[in-house]
Amino acid sequence: MSASSQWHVATVVDAPRITRTARAVTLSVPGFSGALAGQHVDLRLTAADGYQAVRSYSLTAVGADERVDVLVDRVPGGEVSTYLVDDLRVGDQMEVRGPLGGYFVWRPDDAGAVLLVAGGSGLAPLLAMLRARRKIGSTAPFRLVYSVRTPDDVFFPDELDGGASDVEVALVFTRTTPARWPRPAARLGKDDLVAPGFDAADGPTVFVCGSTGFVETVAGLVTELGHDPARVRTERFGGA
């Protein structure tokens, strides 16, 4: 049995609310190690009466063993996400299986251009890639296109602030924009995905993550823009 197929006991060590609907949860997990940026874990919650539920959450940071960082956005009426966002406390316990998935990952030795496209909580695994890149001082060209409803929904705005790094971050607001924002609020379109150095001809690896509806829309747009489907990697979170 490999370690990633086993359930490890996890204890909540930190769980700050980061937006109206989301929390960043940090777990201490003895026995957990070796995660790559883009991977996820399965969380298993057990109620006092024995009922269990399992859900997947992407790692938002890698590199520190025995520690799991995730970001949970509340899905209205959702069984597990509403608990994690509204009720979870420091010291609570659950179980973790992982790290999982070797396909939707960015490897630090890859110097090629990378186009990241996130919708809402789909930022989570892409954040791990951005953080891993910064940590090792990689110069691989990265561009993040991040679609959110309103300015209040942006996760970790200070960290993503373009001025703070050499990664170009394009925020796409779909409902309301900040004052004097040049782009009107609208759904993500082809124009948002075009930028010098990251076009189909440049052959970037494209990572797309978000709700299933979002991923399907974006995967369609990048294919229409001529990106090689073999270079487009998707992570669907479920939901329309």
Partner: peptide
Amino acid sequence: HDPAALDGNALAG
């Protein structure tokens, strides 16, 4: 429309 569909990656666990 198929909101239930995920990528095979989700089966890793």
